[in-house]
Design a protein around this nucleic acid. Structure first.
Length: 279
DNA sequence: ACTATGTCCTGCGAGC
DNA sequence: TGCTCGCAGGACATAG
């Protein structure tokens, strides 16, 4: 499932291929739950506009386009099985394609999502009160794991009774962390997923932050984790799944101490940890 | 204000 | 071999 490293990989890949291109046409599938903003509004906002940049905020891909200097942000959330692909027009359209942006040079940006947990929407900048024109800027629901300071990171979890893993998955605290990187960072920090977030010591939280940043950076370098059907903008798989220490390794020996990895359900999610290495 | 749980959706793999 | 069934999970709604 696409989390921060996968979304970052896709956003960078799409940016490199389409920045500066004009969007000539927009097609949408009519599957209502995919569109948080009505399809007609999305099509109207994008048709004839020029793509300025494509970047990642949390788990969301933000495509900034402009027309007559008015910026609009197109938000693409990949959900669990969403793909954003840049294709030549003659590549056959695959099943579960929900949106196609046809570029002026004939190539297409395609959003494909079998399970339909993905969402497309338009983010409008807040209303302007003064004379100046603020740039549209989607900031996401929480803080960025890669740039948050140590003090702010510790403060996020203060007084929280929820398990640390559930807190890591809460996008209004940190955004971008999902099930894989929550499990992997807790393993690398030696912390049990069920520990109450508010009861972790500052030292443990610093270890967790360090582990989380390291695992996210490493995964970005390897193009993300390809579990389920994740691929980048060119349809190429990532390699970080080969570095998973606990995720989906229930019953297999811990790579550090050989204790069998335990699998439990926490916050409705499969949760994997080493009962010896994680206390 | 927090926290916990159910729901959506399809593909895949286990098991009979 | 071919079928059914349960599971995978991010975000959001709803309940406690």
């Amino acid at each position: 499932m696409p989390e921060l490293p996968e979304v970052e990989t896709v956003a960078n890949g799409v940016h490199a291929r389409v920045a500066g291109q004009r969007i000539a046409r927009v097609w949408t599938s009519g599957k209502p739950q995919t569109f948080k903003t009505p399809e007609s509004e999305i099509a109207q906002a994008l048709t004839g506009s020029t793509i300025e940049c494509v970047r990642r905020v949390g788990k969301t891909i933000v495509m900034t386009v402009h027309r007559k200097k008015t910026p609009v942000e197109f938000l693409i959330h990949l959900g669990m099985t969403g793909r954003l692909l840049v294709s030549q027009a003659d590549v056959p359209m695959q099943l579960h394609t929900h949106a196609i942006l046809t570029l002026a040079d004939g190539r297409e940006v395609r959003f494909v999502d079998p399970r339909r947990f993905g969402r497309l929407s338009i983010h409008k900048p807040p209303a302007v009160t003064g004379g100046q024109q603020p740039a549209a800027s989607y900031t996401g629901p929480g803080r960025e794991p890669l740039t948050i300071s140590a003090d702010d990171f510790i403060a996020l979890f203060r007084n929280r009774k929820t398990p640390i893993k559930a807190a890591l998955l809460n996008q209004s605290l940190l955004h971008g962390v999902g099930n894989i990187y929550a499990d992997e960072s807790l393993f690398r920090a030696g912390i049990r997923p069920r520990r109450q977030a508010g009861r972790l010591t500052a030292e443990e939280l610093l270890r967790l932050r360090k582990a989380l940043v390291a695992v996210l950076r490493h995964a970005i370098k390897l193009g993300g984790s390809s579990v389920s059907d994740y691929v980048d903008a060119d349809g190429v798989r990532g390699f970080f799944q080969l570095q998973h220490k606990v995720y989906m390794r229930g019953g297999e020996p811990c790579l550090v101490c050989e204790t069998p990895i335990k699998r439990i359900t926490l916050a409705g999610r499969g949760t994997h940890f080493c009962p010896n290495c994680q206390q």
